[in-house]
Design a protein around this nucleic acid. Structure first.
Length: 781
DNA sequence: GGCCGGGGCATTTTT
DNA sequence: TGCCCCGGCC
């Protein structure tokens, strides 16, 4: 290893890296080189010769963070050493540990991991079985309550015994929550399944009840590092404390100012109070920001200074002073989209930036739509992050459910997914009987399916036969899972289950995309097998694949990272990323801060931190934006500018002349070249202004919505040329591709404004009348 | 058991 | 406005 690696660090970073005599807390401001400190510290520990790689436990929150860190460490100490580190997400590391001691807890070592969909669906089933009103006991709410209980290590027994909880539930008119929790707990156990929260909760139970196991890991993990400590919940905090108890060799890294996941149980007190738990704890502050201009750093500092609960620090930048933060004011969300799109166009030209240097950050996913439309109209390529991950798509989950059954047939959620998919005549009625029967006999659904007669299942002979066929099918997969490799099993599942037959019957666009997804899944498994083979592992069972997949919400395998697109994502999703130019949009009361957070000071502070995170993503320019009116739940709603705008020192802002902002100063103090735009004239030097002014913000122009893969749009002339037969650029004879109906030819155009329609003859589905205002399609060349 | 249409409902979401 | 879920119908 290069002995000079410490030279790459600044003084504060170096101090944090070389100190390892006891517990330390590294407060790492935004853009201060946190990952660098963690990776160098691990390299330093290895270089000291005092620690073998497997004695170092390094925990992160995302797979991506773990992978990146592993790669960087491999670059310093070599891949062979790096791969032997215990480095990964909390969930993956402790799932691994749980699997090797599952018998202690009465679980099979091949236990299934329920994702949120599975666990919600089970809760829903239970609520229904209890004949409760699912408006009162809304599965999503029940799930959140159970999740919070688990994160606080409150088991069903403790939950039922707790008076405060009972009172709170009674108050909320949900007195039976305790029973739901108890049933949910038992059902998961019977299904041999753990949800995400269980992975942490059962780890705690394992350590609490099996001193030898705890002892073993306390001895093994001689140094523990935790990234993003501000996001830990109580369950995670306690695991760390237990493991570090005897040696106190612990280094936690985080930034209290970037704690934005309290709604998932993260507890900012874990980092704020660390010094109380470890009085000898050394604190290192990384305060130099290497990412952003001085203006951006100063503006962000002035904002976060409004929070009460924080660890004081003085973040500074030695980069250029940079541009002030511009605040854009629009009348409507529609205009906001237009403005941001036009700023991107001009800024890209002026600063010679690529599209990929830009990000639009918003508070809620639903805000993305309007920007999609605005960017598409300007032919600006973009990518939206945060759609559902590949493994959560229905058809993919269906196939995976077969894999899960093959590994653990007790898996109730998997069984419910596939017992009638593809259709084999086992409907809801039968399923309800099976479930009821399993509940009364306190066994799994699979048991009942296998032995319906012994459990006196009340169904007719035809159904019995269908159940037998299903059970035989699954049993054949179970056998294969034990002997064949992952890919061969997967291939057999797709062919023999009837999924193939179901999806490949017709070529409707929906089915085509399903076929693609399933093929992608199979390819993924093949790749998984061959990459394991490269590592020298010969037998790759489906169990290995599932273990990987169930904890991979893969946000990162997004293909083609290098293509040049504007990024759109929620502020939450942007944490840890950086962009040259950032637009933070929708800065309005009840949206950012969210209406639901305004009740409590604590939650309001979290929203403020959220904006802090958003602003500090920017390297060179940051632009804030709000609209006076916005469509919310289908209705236009007035929306005053966010209070947070006034929390930022106006010295760093270019403010629009808008009384709604509530500044007392005389307008001229804030007058700028960019005063409020009362027309569309801002974009003097871009193509847009040469267009005839037919596009008033509210007129119903065609909304082009290509499929995800077709984001690159036809040349501008297509839709913008004044010579086009109509203002929306559509003409009879043109070919279009519709989201759902596929490819077709325009036969007729009629109506005006909102009522404008086209009649299209589609290749696969015949002729359809589409209202332009709503139709989602692209014009083909 | 599958399809259609009306009504109710809409945060953020590393694993 | 758009999605999801349920109930009614075939």
């Amino acid at each position: 290893m290069d002995a000079n690696y410490l030279q790459d660090l600044n003084e504060q970073q170096r101090a944090a890296v070389v100190y390892n005599d006891g517990p330390s807390l590294v407060i790492a401001g935004a853009g201060s080189g946190k990952t660098r400190v963690l990776t160098y510290k691990i390299a330093h520990l290895l270089a000291s010769g005092e620690y073998a790689p497997y004695q170092i436990l390094a925990l992160t929150f995302t797979n991506k963070a773990a992978r990146e860190m592993k790669e960087r460490i491999a670059g310093i100490v070599g891949g062979a050493t790096a791969s032997r580190l215990f480095m990964g997400t909390f969930h993956s590391i402790f799932a691994r540990i749980l699997r090797s001691h599952a018998d202690r807890l009465g679980f099979p070592s091949d236990f299934t991991i329920y994702d949120q969909t599975d666990s919600r669906s089970l809760i829903k089933t239970i609520v229904k079985e209890m004949n409760l009103d699912d408006k009162v006991y809304k599965p999503s709410i029940v799930q959140a309550i159970i999740s919070h209980a688990k994160n606080a290590l409150v088991t069903p027994g403790a939950y039922a015994a707790n008076r405060d909880i009972a009172e709170a539930d009674a108050q909320a008119r949900r007195p039976l929550l305790r029973d739901i929790y108890k049933f949910y707990w038992e059902r998961c156990f019977r299904a041999g399944a753990m949800d995400f929260d269980d992975l942490l909760l059962y780890t705690n139970i394992l350590f609490r009840d099996h001193a030898d196991v705890l002892d073993f890991y306390q001895n093994q993990f001689r140094y523990i590092l935790v990234d993003e400590y501000q996001d830990t919940n109580f369950a995670q905090h306690l695991i760390i404390n237990q493991l570090a108890k005897s040696h106190h060799r612990l280094c936690v890294v985080g930034d209290d100012a970037q704690s934005i996941y309290s709604f998932r149980g993260a507890n900012i007190d874990n980092i704020l109070n660390l010094r109380k738990e470890y009085p000898e704890c050394r604190v290192f502050k990384l305060e130099q920001n290497y990412r952003s201009t001085q203006t951006i750093v100063a503006a962000a500092n002035s904002l976060i200074a409004k929070n009460e609960e924080r660890i004081p620090k003085d973040i500074f930048s030695h980069k250029a002073v940079g541009e002030k933060i511009e605040v854009l004011s629009s009348y409507s969300d529609f205009e906001e989209g237009y403005l941001v799109a036009s700023r991107i166009t001009t800024l890209r030209m002026a600063s010679a930036s690529a599209y990929s240097d830009f990000a639009i950050l918003y508070r809620t996913n639903s805000q993305s739509r309007i920007f999609e439309e605005a960017l598409r109209k300007r032919n600006i390529p973009y990518r939206i992050y945060g759609g559902q991950s590949f493994y959560l798509r229905k058809e993919v989950k269906d196939v995976i459910a077969y894999f899960r059954m093959a590994v653990n047939p007790a898996d109730e959620e998997a069984l419910k997914r596939i017992i009638n998919y593809p259709a084999r005549g086992i409907g809801n009625t039968t399923l309800a009987k099976i479930t009821e029967c399993a509940t009364t006999h306190e066994t799994s659904l699979w048991e009942v399916v296998c032995r319906p007669l012994e459990y006196a299942l009340d169904v007719n002979g035809g159904t019995l036969n269908k159940l037998k066929n299903f059970a035989d099918l699954i049993r054949s997969f179970v056998e294969k899972a034990a002997t064949e490799n992952a890919y061969d099993l997967a291939d057999a599942v797709v062919r023999q289950s009837g999924i193939m037959g179901d999806i490949y019957t017709d070529r409707s666009p929906e089915n085509l995309s399903r076929q693609e997804n399933i093929e992608e899944l199979l390819n993924g498994i093949q790749e998984f097998c061959s990459s394991r083979r490269e590592e020298g592992i010969e037998a790759i069972s489906i169990t290995d694949f599932l273990a990987e997949v169930s904890l991979a919400t893969d946000q990162d395998s997004e293909e083609g990272e290098d293509d040049d697109r504007v990024t759109m994502m929620t502020v939450h999703a942007s944490k840890g990323l950086e962009f040259k130019h950032v637009f933070v949009v929708g800065l309005e009361e009840e949206l950012f801060p969210s209406a639901l957070a305004m009740g409590s000071a604590r939650e309001l502070e979290e929203e403020r931190r959220l904006l802090y995170v958003a602003i500090t993503r920017a390297e060179e320019t940051c632009t804030l934006s709000y609209a006076a009116s916005r469509y919310r739940n289908g209705k236009p709603t007035a929306s005053p500018p966010s209070r947070f705008i006034k929390d930022i020192d106006p010295a760093y802002l270019i403010l629009p002349d808008d009384r709604a902002l509530g500044y007392r100063q005389t307008p001229h103090e804030f007058s700028t070249p960019y005063t409020r735009r009362t027309d569309w004239g801002e974009s003097r030097n871009d193509r847009e202004s040469y267009r005839p002014q037919t596009n008033s913000p509210t007129s119903g122009t065609a909304v082009f919505r290509p499929a995800k893969r077709m984001v690159r749009i036809a040349p501008a002339a297509e839709s913008a040329a004044p010579a086009a037969p109509s203002s929306d650029g559509l003409a009879v004879g043109m070919h279009i591709r519709h989201d759902r109906f596929g490819v077709g030819e325009i036969r007729e155009i009629s109506g005006e404004g909102d009522n404008r329609k086209i009649n299209v003859d589609f290749e696969n589905v015949g002729s359809k009348l589409l209202l332009l205002k709503f139709a989602k399609f692209v014009v083909l060349e």
